[in-house]
């Protein structure tokens, strides 16, 4: 079984939510509601590098309440 998040030759997006949590996303699938594309379609490693460089604090931002 192939997993859509583990194709080193695939094309991906980087999504981000209101809590600044990042998610890899296969570029051929529609990004879910509640998420913004922060890095356009790029290869796997480029997206991972973008996430490493831009998501430095994994604790969810709680600016949106709760």
């Amino acid at each position: 079984m192939t997993n859509p998040f583990e194709n080193p030759d695939g094309t991906y997006l980087v999504l981000v939510n209101e809590r600044n949590q990042h998610s890899l996303w296969p570029s051929h699938l529609v990004p879910p509601m509640g998420w913004t594309v922060t890095r356009g379609a790029a290869d796997y490693q480029t997206c991972l590098d973008h996430i490493e460089a831009n998501w430095t604090d994994l604790s969810p931002k709680s600016s949106v309440g709760q």
Binding site: Q21, H22, S23, G34, W35, L58
Partner: peptide, 21 residues
């Protein structure tokens, strides 16, 4: 300390579609 690994395993939830993972 593993943002890239986190972003490949904890992914946007298209069923909740509310920004959760």
């Amino acid at each position: 300390s593993r943002p890239a690994l986190t972003a490949t395993r904890f992914v946007a939830d298209p069923f909740a579609a509310d920004g959760t993972r």
